[in-house]
Computed example of a mutant assay.
Amino acid sequence: MTNWTSKETVDKYTQWNESPAGVFALRAKMKLIADLISGWPRRGRRFLEVGCAAGRMTEMFYHAGFDVTGLDCSPSMLEAARELLGQRAEFFLGKAEHLPFEDRQFDYVGVGSVLEFVDDPEAVLEEALRVASRGVIVTVYSKWSLYYLSRNCSGADFADDRTWLSPFAVDRMLRNQVETGLFTRRSILLGPVCTWRDAPVCNWLNSSILPYGFGALSGVCIDKNDTKMTIPLMVKKCSAKPSILNACRTNLAARNSASTFDK
């Protein structure tokens, strides 16, 4: 399995995220998650991101309005996350299978692209559900996708030994552990990795929110207490998601411009 504590892995992860395909995939992931959590209240709500890596998604959750905490097993990743977010978030070193938190300590928990890299994904989900009082969101790259078929292409990924899961396997694991709750499922990134770039046809192909399991990245949002949307539909569609995404896109653009200038 991928050694997330090694500098080589961190460097490969950074290179992937700074590549055109990696930047495109990150924007798509933000769009998917913004869609899935658009009904969650945020002000004053505690959010834990399990597997926060270098903090780019943690930053999105911060801009969404949550009080954010990140956890990762890699000291190098946490160092990068702390550099990115400063005092805006708390960070902890630990394993997703054994979270160092009390039951229901957080309102919401996010598990993003972690299950593919652990020996016991069900333990990760059990821990996430344990420390979340209101809801959990899980994303996973699917083996039922054109991304999976193109995984051997040059530059297609930063980790070549992930355990590919089907979205329905993840859904089944969650169903085995959640007795009551409202499930929302979506996916994004329909095309293979060679189409993850800014071009009219590619944007049309990969930027639409899709039914669960159709895209490379699938997400499941669980409201543990059957909580309903607290944001009216028109506000959710017209205001909530764009405000989050615009803030994140501005930060991504600024970082990309800075990287280009440094080069």
Rank of each mutant, 00 (worst) to 15 (best):
G44N: 14
A216N: 02
V193L: 11
I37R: 10
E179I: 00
S208N: 15
V111N: 09
S243D: 12
V178F: 05
L125E: 00
E126L: 03
L217Q: 12
W164I: 03
R88D: 01
S259I: 00
L26W: 12
G112S: 15
R104V: 08
S207H: 15
A254N: 14
H98V: 08
F168R: 12
S154W: 11
A96E: 11
A81N: 01
I244F: 07
K7W: 04
G44R: 07
I33Q: 07
R43Q: 10
Q177Y: 06
V131W: 07
P100W: 12
Q177K: 15
A54E: 08
R88W: 00
T260V: 06
N3K: 11
L26E: 09
W196E: 00
V178L: 10
S207A: 12
V114F: 08
E126K: 13
S74Q: 02
N152I: 03
V140D: 06
T9Y: 11
V50I: 03
C202L: 04
F91I: 00
V111F: 13
F66I: 03
M77P: 00
A240H: 12
F261S: 08
Y148K: 11
A240M: 07
A253D: 14
Q177P: 02
P242N: 13
A25Q: 11
L125N: 13
F168K: 04
